[in-house]
Design a protein around this nucleic acid. Structure first.
Lengths: 208, 208
DNA sequence: GCCCGTTTGTGAATCCTGTAACACGAATCG
DNA sequence: CGATTCGTGTTACAGGATTCACAAACGGGC
């Protein structure tokens, strides 16, 4: 498995490359150098070349990278060629916003089910998705081939919900709750936390 | 200015400490060791002690850290003792969700104004905030002491909107648009991008 | 076919971050 | 009151990541 000796920071940058390349492609560009791509993303050409070199040789000396080809390769590497199925837990304000967010589908991420522990929510329809009781979670994950759990519950419920999701069989967790939850080895977690972002921002703003 | 030689990674971790300490405080704990805090956050005690040592000596040998005291110090360091005023640009679905998000206010972040370039939106009320035309932006930023701009517009509009915000005088940008915008030196930017998070996650999921 | 400007891929060198080790202060206990 | 335990702050070190520098490769022009 190639993921073994690729630094995680590198993996975190790959989606940025995918996005920048897609944008350039939209603009009609067919070939790009690490120089140009670096200018676009505000990073050094050397870093881009080094990052890519972990996975293969995609460029041509003297020319640069063929965008279409590199994009296909990067999508393969990241596993973006298939549809990824996710379920959402928590259909409060935040959860509803996530379901209705139009940015996931075009990238191949589909929310196929929603759950809530509140009986008033269960049975209602949110953005075309039936809200199910937490008890159905394991069954749905298995039947619907769900690999990603999205957590949009209040802080105190986050850890128990994540435990249930993991036990249910999801392999990745996208956590919107303002906590730093613990997950067993082998489960991939990403936190979305605007408050943390703001709190580190103010450090630099406070006496500027 | 202390911010000069403190590594950015360290600054990014400070809000995590604030959060964990707050949680412990809620639970009634008064003193905590780097050991315990590390267990809570899944990091080594050494790292916590090193991080804190960039800013001063907050602990007592043999005892640990007084939570109330350390919290006060960290809040000071991060600049979290004052109210931070932000404005939002873009009151589509995402923008509305951000305005209604209840997580900002308790941490001292207030959204005091909202803008949109769409004339149909201008004048409407969203979550108790009047939506203003983009033209009023500079004026409002100055008059209302706004230091942070929150961007919730479609990708193509993000860069121009950010340019306007910066010219208008904000010092920090919280960007929800799926792009990697360029900002002049001295402006602090943080990106909130769940799609990027998912795309780096799938790298590890794709053949697990 | 050969030269020339360009740009890649990659060791080597540098910089940065995290970890381990330890000396010292503070509290506790008999 | 001396010995012991605990946990900090700090220094030294190891491991990673980033940048540098250059040989090798490519394409175009002639």
């Amino acid at each position: 498995m190639q993921s073994m000796d690729v630094p995680e920071v590198v993996v975190l940058r790959l989606p940025l490359y995918v996005r920048a390349l897609t944008q350039l492609q939209m603009g009609g560009t067919e070939v790009v150098s690490s120089q140009q791509l670096g200018a676009h993303l505000q990073m050094t050409p050397a870093q881009i070349r080094k990052d890519l070199s972990y996975f293969g040789r995609f460029g041509k000396q003297g020319r640069g990278y063929n965008i279409q080809f590199l994009l296909k390769e990067l999508r393969d590497i990241l596993g973006l060629t298939k549809e990824w199925r996710a379920c959402l837990v928590g259909v409060g304000r935040l959860g509803r916003a996530i379901i209705n967010y139009t940015g996931f589908a075009p990238e191949g991420f589909t929310i196929v089910a929603a759950f809530d522990s509140n009986d008033d929510q269960v049975g209602t329809d949110v953005g075309g998705i039936q809200v199910l009781p937490m008890g159905d979670l394991a069954k749905v994950i298995a039947k619907q081939d769900v690999t990603i759990g999205i957590v949009a519950v209040p802080a105190v419920q986050a850890q128990p919900v994540i435990d249930i999701l993991v036990k249910g069989g999801v392999k990745g967790i996208l956590n919107y709750a303002p906590v730093a939850p613990q997950v067993p080895l082998g489960i991939v977690m990403r936190n979305i936390d605007p408050v943390l972002s703001l709190q580190s921002m103010t450090f630099y703003l406070k006496d500027g």
